[in-house]
Design a protein around this nucleic acid. Structure first.
Lengths: 101, 101
DNA sequence: CCGTATCCGAGAAGATACTG
DNA sequence: CAGTATCTTCTCGGATACGG
């Protein structure tokens, strides 16, 4: 049984939350527990629609965010953090605090 | 004087410690307070010499790491964290712990 | 309203060889 | 030992336009 040289779980963590807007999205979803697509856009104006879409897709795939779609016209979706996503609170807020000081 | 819409210090933090190997380098320097170049290479075997050099240069420029050069033959250098670098302990260890769970 | 598709340029990172 | 130089490749992200 050769241990797979997993020298550093940091890389895994970083892979999930780096990407230009992921950490910011998570941070916003911590403060605004459920958000529609456009709300997120307004909260993060510098993030293009395309990027927001892509990053959310990644976050969803990685189990950090869930998307709820209401089958109505016009379309309505809501994004929120999963438990796994919420568990990043310490990390993300740690970065937030450090960035301020 | 228009305030630059600095909505999220997270981005600043992330800018300093993302980059493929930076957080790992910091983590290693937390555990091994001073390291020579080759020691770091051995600690992070997947990071090429070129990349290690570049990332260290960034970290140095950003005031997270200091390099001490001994004018001897063969060359000897030692890298260590600045106070600012050490202050990332919580953040980096937070990521490490989260990555394990 | 909530996205996707396509195209394109810049920068990140790998491979390899060389230097003080 | 501790890097740098050069070249190529690849990924990310911006701009723009379109679709259910």
């Amino acid at each position: 049984m050769t241990e797979p040289t997993q020298q550093c779980p940091i890389e895994n963590t970083l892979k999930l939350i780096s990407g230009k807007w992921k950490s910011v999205i998570i941070y916003m979803l911590l403060k605004h527990p459920t958000c529609r697509f456009n709300e997120l856009q307004k909260l993060i104006p510098d993030c293009s629609r395309r990027m927001l879409s892509l990053q959310l897709k990644d976050l969803e795939r990685d189990g950090l965010v869930v998307k709820k779609v209401y089958p109505v016209v016009p379309p309505k979706t809501e994004y929120s953090l999963t438990e796994r996503g919420k568990s990043l609170k310490e990390v993300v807020e740690g970065m937030q605090k450090w960035g301020q000081a």
